[in-house]
Design a protein around this nucleic acid. Structure first.
Lengths: 344, 344
DNA sequence: CTGAAAGCGCTTACAG
DNA sequence: CTGAAAGCGCTTACAG
């Protein structure tokens, strides 16, 4: 005999009483409860999770699906760790376990999620890096599994998502550069099929239009999350007949290559080319001159996602239908010295 | 009625037969099996994991505990993603699910693991970033949970671990530098309490001794995993009465600061200071002159850990007692231009 | 406040 | 090859 049954027998009470005591059920004599808790602690007893899930119909755990693609923002840097920290800070308080579920490159991400969803491994899911069309969303909706996505998607409807306020970032950046007299403002957009690519580019178009500036696809550059892509960016932008005088970088880390290439050309960030990064990354904090960029608390992002998920879990006492969180996290401008008045 | 019972009734067979068909039990009529598989696929049925675990006594999942401490090597770069990729490549083939279990900074890592272990959430564990004294090892041993650690520890005995061959790295680096005529060879050792710190430093001492070189604590520098720590390293090393002429960097990324500071001083990597990085990181691949460093396949590291764990799981048919894997992954030297003959 | 008992959804000896 | 039934270790109405 093992588990709760053994504990119950040793204490001379029923398994029901042990269960109640352990689960904080108020209908237990204070002394009895004390006795049970002590014995459980002494023996290092904890209820078997599988049995518990089966009996209760919930797992008290949530999953966070990530994809192991180095192209992804979440795939590198401290991004991932920061977000997890924020999630844990919220979930731990609710007694929920967080399982990060990594989907390898070789695996089909839809099949991967299907397997998790159909076997009831978690009570809720958080998805990272949504695509513009993302079947995973419909899958979770039809499976009636509560979820929230990190990133928007055109798939599904009325679901919870948290995303960065790319529109706000681009609006602020363009306003600032236009204020400095720039009219040829280039932008880099990420490679890969995450939805933030199109969103970022659309925001760029919208904000140019707002200022009556023409959209020139020739200064819209695809760039991955690699420092050395910055070199090519500089070469391309400056070799135009009508060179760009400013650039907004989606992946801030490419600024490393941009700075280096400018240096080789005896040009100076902020004077010869104005540079603004989208989201501050640790890897560039040492750049001189300091780069103008936007700050985001990764912890806050993770916490927001976790809270949005909590709001949908049945455990939270709730009568009214779930309201979906659809939130763009604001980023704050951190002015540096990498941008300034247009010269010439 | 739901789950397997519903499926069974619809098909006019018993749940036992459905279960056997789904689990590949040979004692099922081929036609029956076919019928069951089709129906299951059509309905998107998959056995409830909790019920399965309870009945079988195994979860068919393994956990990988990581700590969300930015000081850790694993906390940044593509390190973590690469390792996960390698693990998944092995585990997926075995039908095992991988749960990454992130322990937040605010949580006690021992209590965190205790909770997981006692509730039987996983069949086996992989621990990252072992400490010199690491109680988690004894915990898992006394809980009889198969595990493997990424990193060595003085705790426990006869357990499986995979680690980097820091000894080999340091031996090769020191040999190379001595061959270039260097005799004042500095080293940086990581901050934080992971065991690779002391291991790296000890290897350094041993290899100096092997060449009859004196150990001078003044050129053994603590350094975190931040680029800008490189600046201070240069200033310190060159300001000595007897300046170091070479340095081995534990965190290769600090080379960025080292290069920058040398440049400011009009000094040149490879000529005025020889530099060797321990493990090649993406962040420095663009450095000029190219840095001499050591290459490690993160995928291989992850795969090795997963295989070492598999060897301990009961599922693998095995009679003889488990043999523990204790493996130092070799790193291969990638010669660059950041080191060379001592001048002066 | 407590216990006996049913039930959660599977798997698997056992019997045929 | 198949089914009836027990059992995995919990939780929770139900009865007292």
């Amino acid at each position: 005999m093992r588990g709760i049954a053994r504990l119950a027998r040793e204490l001379g009470v029923s398994t029901a009483t042990v269960s109640r005591a352990l689960n904080g059920n108020p209908n237990v004599n204070a002394e009895t409860r004390q006795k049970v808790l002590e014995a459980a602690h002494r023996q290092g007893y904890a209820p078997n999770q599988a049995a518990r899930s089966l009996a209760q119909g919930v797992t008290r755990s949530v999953g966070f699906m990530i994809e192991l693609d180095p192209e992804n923002t979440a795939g590198t840097d401290y991004f991932f760790m920061g977000v997890l920290e924020g999630m844990q800070n919220v979930l731990v308080g609710q007694g929920l376990d967080l399982f990060v579920l990594p989907c390898a490159r070789a695996q089909d991400n839809f099949v991967f999620l299907q397997r998790i969803a159909s076997r009831g491994v978690v009570d809720g899911m958080i998805l990272a890096e949504t695509r513009r069309i993302d079947q995973r969303i419909e899958l979770l909706q039809s499976s009636h599994i509560p979820f929230v996505t990190l990133g928007r998607s055109d798939s599904g409807r009325d679901y919870s998502w948290i995303d960065l306020d790319f529109e706000g970032v681009v609006a602020t950046a363009v306003d600032r550069l236009v204020g400095f007299g720039h009219r040829r403002i280039a932008v880099t957009v990420p490679t890969g099929d995450a939805n933030y690519g199109p969103i970022f580019e659309q925001a760029y178009r919208d904000n140019l239009a707002r200022h009556g500036l023409p959209y020139d696809p020739d200064i819209v550059l695809k760039a991955g999350r690699r420092e050395d892509e910055g070199d090519a960016i500089v070469d391309h932008l400056l070799s135009r007949p009508d060179p760009a005088t400013a650039v907004i970088l989606f992946h801030e880390v490419t600024a490393i290559g941009v700075y280096r290439r400018l240096d080789q050309l005896r040009l100076q960030p902020g004077r010869d080319l104005s540079i603004i990064g989208c989201r501050s990354e640790d890897a560039v904090r040492f750049l001189a001159p300091e780069i103008t960029c936007f700050h985001l608390s990764l912890q806050d992002l993770g916490s927001a996602a976790a809270r949005a998920l909590l709001a949908q879990l049945p455990s939270s006492a709730r009568r009214e239908p779930v309201e979906h969180v659809q939130q763009r996290m604001p980023l704050t401008l951190v002015p540096g010295k990498s941008d300034g008045p247009r010269i010439g």
